[in-house]
């Protein structure tokens, strides 16, 4: 049984897809998500094998969502859309398959075959996805998109990953790893990413560690391991 996650902004589309997946007897539906944020959370938590993903969704579309998934967790992706204008783009994104709504049962069975082959060959899907220009954050029950250029640093802790801007801290579902890979933020500590453009000064301490003071006066620790890389990067 493959663990499947359904992502679609229409409730009946999700229900219909779930029903059809159940009918094949090949899937265990691990969750249904109405938008990209729910999807990121569910992927991080449920670690599904395959994603049935709608392209057109509010705020963050299906392609953008792929760029926000941690590579180690990347499931196989089957795009499900009402209209085939995205087919080419879908395959550029290394989608395993591309289904048109309303989905035909026979067509879905072919997708099942493809998925099975993929998993027996065990080649991990590779998605590069677009760079992240805006980080989706949750802020008092609203979704806030923060430009990466406005981010001073990112901190990960027990409570999750927080994006820190001059005007506040915002919780995000994205992992530190994916933000390091897909944005221009640099790792300065196991738990921190820093935006070099908003650094005010770097204070060197004993033991080859340092502290970074951001333009808004916040202090970010730099560990020994990453100080060396920062030095190479900044040539000091």
């Amino acid at each position: 049984m493959m663990r499947a996650l359904i992502v679609d902004d229409e409730i009946y589309a999700r229900q219909e897809m779930e029903a059809m997946l159940n009918e094949t007897g090949e899937f265990l539906v691990a969750g249904k998500c109405a938008n990209a944020l729910e999807a990121i959370r569910a992927i991080n938590k449920e670690r599904p094998d395959v994603l049935f993903l709608d392209v057109q969704m509010p705020v963050i579309n299906g392609f953008e969502l792929l760029g926000m998934i941690d590579e180690s967790l990347m499931p196989a992706v089957v795009f499900v859309t009402a209209y085939d204008e995205y087919a080419l783009k879908a395959f550029e994104e290394n989608a395993l398959d591309y289904l048109l709504k309303p989905v035909e049962k026979e067509r879905l069975l072919k997708t099942v075959e493809k998925l099975k082959r993929r998993f027996t060959e065990d080649d991990k899907p590779v998605f590069t996805g677009p760079d992240i220009k805006k980080i989706p954050c949750i802020h008092s029950a609203k979704i806030k998109l923060i430009n990466t250029a406005d981010v001073e640093y990112v901190r990960s802790g027990d409570g999750g990953v927080y994006v820190i801007c001059p005007n506040g801290e915002f919780y995000t579902e994205l992992t530190l790893q994916i933000l390091e890979n897909k944005t221009n933020l640099l790792r300065c500590h196991k738990q921190y990413l820093i935006n070099i453009d908003l650094v005010d000064e770097i204070l060197l301490r004993e033991n080859m560690v340092a502290e970074i003071k951001t333009k808004s006066g916040r202090v970010v620790p730099v560990s020994r391991r990453y100080l060396r890389m920062l030095r190479e990067r900044l040539l000091f």
């Binding site: 009946y12 219909e16 029903a19 009402a82 709504k101």
Partner: peptide
Amino acid sequence: NPHFLFNSLNTIIAVLRI
């Protein structure tokens, strides 16, 4: 809008189950 048409049909098909 083809999205409208096909999504509508998809919805109607789903509603048919219920």
